[in-house]
């Protein structure tokens, strides 16, 4: 087979350049700075700085508060990912079966996709308001004295609910198109073999959806870890207090709000390593078991 390719190195380099420059300026350069400043203690105004070696890292390892935030982030990410994927899959399977008015249903379900995270947070604030929030009132009717911003379990519940609500449409769109790309012939063949709809779903549909689900898993984990910042910030009204926060919010709180650039940089380097591990893990281990059609 004849290999298509460039004859010289200069043209491909030229074509790659814009992308490389962007990655360099917006990723490698700041990442390099973060790594460097994580070994220093810096005056917020940038006058003095002291080299402290790995102290910013050892301090994190010994901090019970950091462990608490990390543990919360783990649970939060798992819940947001699982719930938004699970609910979206359920909705997509059901929407796939609807014949009359299908378009209206789908549009309504996708609608929320257009809402930005901070806006979703504000909507959450209104729904969960201590005095006039409809959800707070509904929960009070069930005997749950829901207190956003006071009780950290309640605040965490609101954070998970808003983040999941915001993410369902994205997953829904992908799952639905994934479902619709499963060949009709395969489904019909399965129908002859097995009468049980649930079993057909797990034996035929779900494995065929795996590539979509794998892709969404990555997207959702990064969403829960990083992109929910806006939801967290608005729901806690910018006041960390005793509210649960995620690791990314802690980087912001210590670095920007608190002015501790060294400590905050060390935290962001830890997150960077975490993402790296996650990526390697996903591609090495999961990718092998997924069959793309």
């Amino acid at each position: 087979m004849k290999r298509a390719g460039f004859r010289t190195i200069s043209l491909p380099m030229l074509l790659l350049l814009p992308q490389l420059v962007i990655i360099g300026i917006f990723f490698y350069w700041p990442a390099g700075w973060a790594i460097q400043s994580s070994f220093y203690l810096q005056d917020p105004f940038g006058f003095g700085s002291t080299y402290v070696g790995a102290e910013n890292y050892t301090r994190l390892a010994g901090s019970s508060e950091y462990r608490k935030v990390a543990w919360f982030t783990l649970i939060y990410t798992a819940l947001v990912t699982f719930l938004s994927l699970g609910i979206a899959l359920l909705l997509a399977v059901k929407a796939d079966k609807v014949i009359r008015g299908a378009k209206t249903y789908r549009t309504l379900l996708m609608w929320v996709y257009a809402v930005a995270p901070p806006v979703a947070g504000f909507l959450g604030l209104m729904f969960f308001d201590q005095n006039v929030g409809p959800i707070t009132e509904f929960l009070a009717g069930l005997g749950w004295d829901f207190k956003l911003g006071v009780n950290s379990f309640d605040t965490a519940t609101a954070m998970v609910m808003v983040a999941v609500w915001k993410q369902i449409p994205v997953n829904f769109i992908f799952f639905l198109s994934g479902l619709q790309s499963i060949p009709r012939s395969v489904r019909e063949a399965a129908m002859i073999d097995n009468k049980s709809g649930t079993q057909r779903f797990w034996d035929i549909t779900f494995p065929l959806l795996a590539p979509t689900a794998f892709f969404l898993l990555i997207i959702n984990i990064t969403y829960a870890l990083f992109d929910t910042f806006g939801v967290v910030d608005t729901l806690i009204k910018g006041e960390p207090g005793n509210n649960p926060i995620t690791l990314v919010y802690m980087v912001f709180r210590d670095g920007f709000r608190g002015g501790d650039l060294g400590g905050s940089s060390a935290q962001s380097v830890v997150l960077m390593v975490l993402v790296l591990i996650l990526t390697i893990f996903q591609f090495r281990l999961l990718e092998r078991r997924i069959h793309y059609t």
């Binding site: 006071v150 207090g241 709000r257």
Partner: peptide, 20 residues
């Protein structure tokens, strides 16, 4: 770093008052 010190106070006070 008193902004952070206040944040620590706010956090622990909130926990005291929420019974945590």
């Amino acid at each position: 770093f008193y902004v952070q010190v206040r944040d620590v106070m706010q956090r622990e006070y909130g926990r005291i008052l929420a019974g945590e």
